[in-house]
Design a protein around this nucleic acid. Structure first.
Lengths: 231, 231
DNA sequence: CCATGTGAACCTTTTCACAGCA
DNA sequence: TGCTGTGAAAAGGTTCACATGG
């Protein structure tokens, strides 16, 4: 298992969502063509994406919804619990904490943090918002796997550093900022520090989304046409 | 001007953000190497990305921050006003409407819509939330360029259809759903309808971000290492 | 016979080396 | 000399045709 396109992972997430919908509609069988149509990609793509991880279908038959779903859940690592803290409980942080669907897949919010005295102490989703400076102490007593950053841009780097110091393994950064791993001199060369090397950073930037949208709306010919079920 | 990688557009957005930060710090000159470092990409990449759109630097010197910024603003279409409506003013919609930074680039919220009687009538950002069914009438009297979808997943497709019917040119979809363009039979072939063909759909899906993060946290070796300033 | 799974062809994107110019 | 701009090479992803097997 090596060298899987990043885009393939995004598509797997989409396939999984579609399988959930099919299951909710009591549809128990599907095919690469059907999935492709619903996901807005080609059937080739679906089969290739799945092939990176195994053989989940039956030739001549297609896929069994619950089986393929179970396999994708396993592949994506969603059959285990992820303990999550959110840094920044302003409007965005609150929207994230309350967004339905996260808990479906074992994402459990275990700690909420902010610096604003007006927010600290509030109860959100059964948790009391704590001061960011209590994060190190909190992580000493609780397992935390992932940290979500929902602070203003100028605080994002510090928040990320705090999360890395706290030992999280993954960061979902909502701030419109490039998080910089801390580097250190080693043999005259700048290298990423060990703590940072072990951390995955994923970004969700909707201001960037707005700007991309503006660009493509002005230059529609540059946007790949959503492939209509070929093959 | 043709055939520019989608990823290049995302990076341009990042470069622009960095230029803003440099300008705020009164730094007036930069280089492909400097930009690369701050953006977490290679200097080759920066130069190639910029080369798609023109020649903005001076050989031997680098780039002048305000000039490059101005050019990127123009390229991305951010020097014009974009009138935006938001469909769905729950927590997420409110977080979006209030997120600072959108108005910096002429994204102007002109209409806010929901179906929930508890939300309709509220004033948010100086606008009164209206019922979605008033959208067609609203667009008859106001220019609307873009629509943002912040409704629950099962309402997203309808919201999108409403926006297309209302004549928006671009949609930013925050719901974890693949928006399906309406198709029609033409010469025995399924084709995307004309209204939909003219619309750009861009997605911002943070549940998907969470799931990608889970996957890469479990499989860190599959994540491309953030390139440390090469060349 | 049918739809999956996959090696190979094709195309796109990134990387690179260096030519071009202040 | 220094850093940009760019054609060419390398890498990476997607598309395809078809072999496989229920």
């Amino acid at each position: 298992m090596a060298d899987i396109p990043t885009a393939a992972i995004s598509r797997l997430v989409t396939y999984l969502r579609i399988l959930e919908q099919l299951e909710a509609q009591d549809i128990s069988r599907t095919s690469s063509t059907d999935l492709a149509e619903r996901a807005g990609v080609t059937a080739f793509q679906v089969r290739k994406d799945l092939a990176y991880f195994g053989r989940f279908g039956t030739r001549g038959m297609g896929y069994t919804v619950p089986i393929l779903k179970r396999e994708l859940v396993r592949v994506l690592g969603l059959n285990q619990t992820w303990n999550v803290v959110i840094i920044g409980m302003g409007r965005l942080g609150q929207a994230i904490a309350n967004y339905p669907g996260a808990s479906d897949y074992q994402f459990q919010y275990v700690g909420l943090f902010d610096v604003n005295p007006g927010i600290i102490g509030q109860r959100i989703r059964g948790l009391t918002v704590q001061h960011v400076q209590d994060l190190p102490d909190f992580t000493r007593h609780n397992r935390v796997d992932l940290g979500f950053i929902a602070v203003p841009p100028d605080r994002a780097q510090d928040a990320a550093q705090g999360l890395v110091d706290a030992g999280v393994r993954g960061i979902l950064n909502f701030a419109p900022v490039v998080i910089q791993p801390r580097t250190l001199e080693r043999g005259g060369l700048q290298e990423i520090s060990d703590e940072w090397r072990a951390v995955i950073v994923e970004n969700v930037d909707f201001l960037a989304g707005m700007k991309r949208l503006a660009f493509y709306t002005l230059n529609p010919h540059l946007k790949e046409t959503p492939t209509l079920t070929e093959e």
